[in-house]
Design a protein around this nucleic acid. Sequence first.
DNA 1: GGCCAGGCGGCCC
DNA 2: GGGCCGCATGGC
Length: 215
Amino acid sequence: MNNKLLYIYQQLFNQYGKQEWWPADTTEEIIIGAILTQNTNWMNVTKAINNLKAKGLCSLEKLSAAPDERIASLIKPSGYYNVKANRLKNISLLLKGWHPEGLPVKQARDYLLAIKGIGEETADSILLYAFHIPEFVIDTYTIRLFKRLALLPEKVNYSSAQNLFLENLPRNPGLFNEYHALIVEHGKTHCKKKPVCIGCPVRSICSVDQNSIKQ
DNA sequence: GGCCAGGCGGCCC
DNA sequence: GGGCCGCATGGC
């Protein structure tokens, strides 16, 4: 199994190359982006972040002091802007100056999960990409790909999916960072909702019935 | 025009 | 603990 997960990683890496995630300038921008990208296309998130930057509001300190309506108007392109403005405000108050390095990982993760607006994926994204703590990030792309590879069952929750990776890979933040980023790239280009199997780097080990796919 | 996007909390049972 | 719903924009 260990070899299989590493084989898949190697195939994705060979195809897509180094991803250099997270696409952001600062640690706080990563945290802000992690909220804005919830169920949202990254292109729209970029627009929202650029709006915040243009007004000098792309920091937890500034966001924590800004009115919700002002934040909402700037992040509109990212969708769910009222919900996200409220989440950003709340999170900026609780996370400005927060540093989990040195804390037990579970304690750091539980602290994040107790914050309204931070679920499991967002918590793990923040731990991994903002603070280089090796928590494997599970998202819709990950579930979709590994179900198709028959490495996850039809019914699967976040923690059981995460266990597949935690139990079969060395707990290495650099590997976790790159692996998740490669899964996202693969999900955008080949393993879409409607799969594009021509040119897929893991086609030979996939359970998707190639004959049923119109190319 | 419809589908989809790097989820989450609040319900309900 | 799982299933459903509302939240919303912009690209293709």
